[in-house]
């Protein structure tokens, strides 16, 4: 029996497949404009990999979870992230998940989600903010984070994504070094994440999930701000999909 987790986020879709207890496959793709189309592409890719969907239990999660007609069940990304992070880390933690449009802080106790906080109504402190700012600077997100390590410790003062973009443009205009602007952008998102995490309360290890966990320089700067080592794992961006697949075993 296959257990499949499909995590369709606002920016990226992640898929994890277990064959009984063995994690055999993880893949990701941009969500694009339609999560229904994405779910069709995922279905095809799973079949191409020789996975028999009729002999599978499937849970969909994430913002596009309702767009997966072949899923047996939907569960929110909060519960799935909790489950997946516990699988990857093997212990309780405070999970910081920086997604495309949401940043979530999740407390795990005895492997269970006991508390969570989400940003509301605003894209400040999310992956989308970083993506927009990277576009304004004309670099990739990876490059932006790496540049930030070389820059001066400046601040972008506007919290609003739209105003922050204008501020970045005027910094470019005034000849501020690109590295310093990059640092300001990273400082801005890390400051927002810190504020949510601080209000939520940090317990045990801090574990970072979401696409940004793969960027070492971002993890380093976040660790500096939190004044503790932020842990992550190579598969951490799949935490939601892995958690969904694990929960599919209970169906």
């Amino acid at each position: 029996m296959y257990y499949i987790g499909i995590d369709i986020g606002s920016t990226a879709a992640k898929v994890s497949v277990f064959n009984e207890d063995e994690l055999i496959l993880n893949f990701a793709m941009p969500t694009g404009w339609s999560s229904i189309e994405t779910s069709k592409v995922i279905e095809k890719r799973l079949r191409d990999k020789g996975i028999d969907l009729e002999k599978s239990k499937i849970i969909a999660t994430g913002y596009g979870r309702i767009s997966v007609p072949y899923a047996d069940k939907t569960i929110t990304e909060i519960t799935c992230h909790g489950k997946g992070a516990h699988y990857l880390l093997g212990k309780d933690a405070t999970i910081i998940d920086i997604g495309g449009q949401d940043t979530k802080i999740i407390t795990l106790e005895n492997g269970r989600v006991t508390n969570f906080t989400m940003n509301d109504k605003c894209a400040a402190g999310t992956g989308r903010f970083l993506e927009l700012m990277a576009n304004t600077l004309g670099v990739s997100i990876d490059k932006l984070a790496n540049m930030a390590l070389e820059g001066e410790d400046i601040n972008i003062t506007s919290m609003c994504t739209v105003f922050a973009e204008s501020e970045v443009i005027s910094l470019i205009g005034s000849g501020t070094k690109k590295e310093s602007i990059a640092r300001g952008i990273i400082n801005s998102i890390i400051g927002r994440v810190y504020a949510i995490a601080h209000k939520h309360g940090i317990k045990d290890t801090v574990f970072l999930t979401g696409g940004l966990c793969e960027i070492g320089s971002f993890v380093e700067l976040l660790s500096q701000k939190l004044n503790m080592k932020v842990e992550t794992k190579p598969l951490a961006r799949y935490a939601g999909a892995i958690g969904a697949a694990l929960l599919a075993k209970n169906i």
Binding site: Y63, T76, T79, D102, R112, V113, M118
Partner: peptide
């Protein structure tokens, strides 16, 4: 209704924690 999506996620996740506990 500007935050309907977020409210839905929060409510569902809360109910899932109740189920799990």
């Amino acid at each position: 209704d500007s935050d309907t999506g977020q409210v839905k996620v929060r409510v569902e996740a809360f109910l899932e924690t109740i189920e799990v506990s």
